[in-house]
Structure formats: C-alpha cells, structure tokens
C-alpha cells in the first residue's frame, strides 16, 4: 500500500515537474505554474509517507498556498505573452545541461554516502514538538540566519522596485 502510494506520488511529481518546464501542449506560464502546484502537492504526499506530517502541511501552506499564489499574481499582472513565443537558445541549452549535470553529480555523491533503502530510523519522529526542539536548540543559528536572509531579500526587492518608480 505504502509502496504503491510512493510510486504514485513520485510519478506525479516527476511528470508534473517535467510539464512545468517543457509542456508540449501549451507554452502558457499559468499552465506551468499550476503544474508546479501539483508537483508541490505530490512532494507533500511523499513527506506524509515519511511520517513528516508537519513538513507536509507546511509544504502545502507555504509553497502551494502563499508562494504559488504570488507567482500567479505576478503572472496575471505582467501578462507574460512573449514567454509563449520564446524558442530554444544555444546559451540556454548549454547552461541547462551544465546545471543538470551538476545536480546529477551532487545526487550521485549523496546517494553514494547513504545507499538506497538503508536510511534506517528517521532522525526526527513525526511529532511537531520534536522538530521544534531540534530547530530552536540544535540548529538555532542556521534557522535564524535563514530568517535574516529572507528579510534581506525582501528589503532588497522593495528597494529595487521603489527605485524603478520615479
């Protein structure tokens, strides 16, 4: 049962992820964004199968709920028509290939360190309290740093967009 669910969600994630970047039926950015939502939902399903309910809920709440809606908002406001006409460029092909190769290398290295199917017991049990303990005790500094990083990004965006308007 769990294996079946895993393959279902995994297939959904891969297929929808592919359709986000290379949809043969429509070049519409809105369609891409919606397939991204499906990908995120499938990933949340995978989290549930790992008994990480908190992560699954946050994944849906933050990514599918807030971030994707903002993406769609921007798409609606900007009316990205030229995106539909864009064709393949040599630079894009080479850059994309290099990026894929790098990620594949990274995954290969990660998989060699911990072989498939031998993950053993999860580090954090599904409980939200345990996750909070870990985040706010052991990993407090990285957690706060990520928060500051996001704030810097936000301030930067506001500064840039304020400059554009005279």
């Amino acid at each position: 049962m769990e294996t079946l669910c895993f393959y279902l969600f995994a297939a959904l994630a891969v297929v929808c992820g592919f359709l986000v970047v290379a949809n043969p039926f429509s070049r519409n950015p809105v369609a891409s964004a919606m397939f991204l939502v499906l990908t995120i939902a499938a990933l949340a399903g995978l989290f549930v199968l790992l008994h990480a309910f908190f992560l699954a809920a946050v994944q849906i709440l933050v990514y599918a709920g807030a971030v994707m809606v903002l993406f769609l908002f921007v798409i609606m406001l900007l009316d990205l028509k030229e995106e539909e006409r864009r064709s393949w460029r040599k630079f894009g092909l080479v850059g994309g290939g290099v990026a894929v190769a790098l990620i594949a290398l990274l995954m290969y290295a990660a998989l060699r360190q911990s072989p498939l199917g031998a993950a053993g017991e999860p580090r954090v049990e599904g409980s939200t309290a345990a996750l909070g303990e870990l985040l706010f005790r052991q990993y407090l500094l990285p957690f706060e740093l990520v928060g500051v990083l996001l704030l810097v990004g936000m301030v930067g965006v506001i500064w840039l967009s304020k400059r554009a308007v005279p």
């Binding site: 809920a57 849906i60 599918a64 709920g65 994707m68 809606v69």
Partner: peptide, 8 residues
C-alpha cells in the same frame, strides 16, 4: 494548509 487551496 488545505484552506490555502481555495485561493488557487
């Protein structure tokens, strides 16, 4: 989380 789906 599921409530966020209605915005979509």
């Amino acid at each position: 989380a599921v409530g966020a789906g209605t915005e979509l």
